[in-house]
């Protein structure tokens, strides 16, 4: 099941050229770019691991694509997203975030029903992949 988090996630995966152009748009707006990765696709997993520092002062998108490819070399089987931060309000706020790398197989989510007091049912989801320990979830 395809994970659809962030912008553009219902579109086919971007090529590097398309990523380059999106990133250039962010840079031209004065936003800082960060690359983040995770192997836990739970929608409430907001804080992904950072790949290096956010990039504040690169005028060209090639730098971000370069770092993305470095990240792919290490975490090629994980989810990787590019996040753009806008500091114009006085704090860093996310303007754009999109997934640029995903595992070849995405097993999807399991629906858990927990019976609670009064035969009420509480629902939760958990990714099938997170049964395994972190780092060995995708190959």
């Amino acid at each position: 099941m395809r994970v659809t988090q962030g912008t553009f996630s219902f579109l086919p995966d971007f090529t590097d050229q398309q990523i380059h152009e999106q990133v250039q748009y962010c840079i031209d707006n004065g936003w800082a770019l960060s690359i983040e990765h995770t192997d836990d696709p739970h929608p409430r997993n907001t804080y992904w691991e950072m790949w290096g520092h956010p990039m504040f002062d690169n005028p060209d998108a090639a730098a971000v694509v370069y770092e993305l490819n470095e990240c792919r070399k290490v975490y090629g089987s994980h989810y990787i997203k590019i996040v753009a931060f806008d500091s114009s309000p006085g704090w860093e706020s996310i303007r754009l975030s999109f997934i640029v790398n995903r595992p070849t197989e995405e097993p999807g989510f399991k629906l858990n029903r927990t019976e609670i007091k009064g035969r009420n049912i509480q629902y939760s989801i958990s990714p099938y992949s997170s049964d395994k320990p972190q780092g060995s979830r995708y190959k």
Binding site: D57, N58, D60, Y66
Partner: peptide, 14 residues
């Protein structure tokens, strides 16, 4: 390595 890469990234496109 990080220092050199930082500079190279800054120079990309130029």
């Amino acid at each position: 390595a990080p220092k050199t890469k930082e500079v190279l990234k800054k120079a990309m496109g130029g």
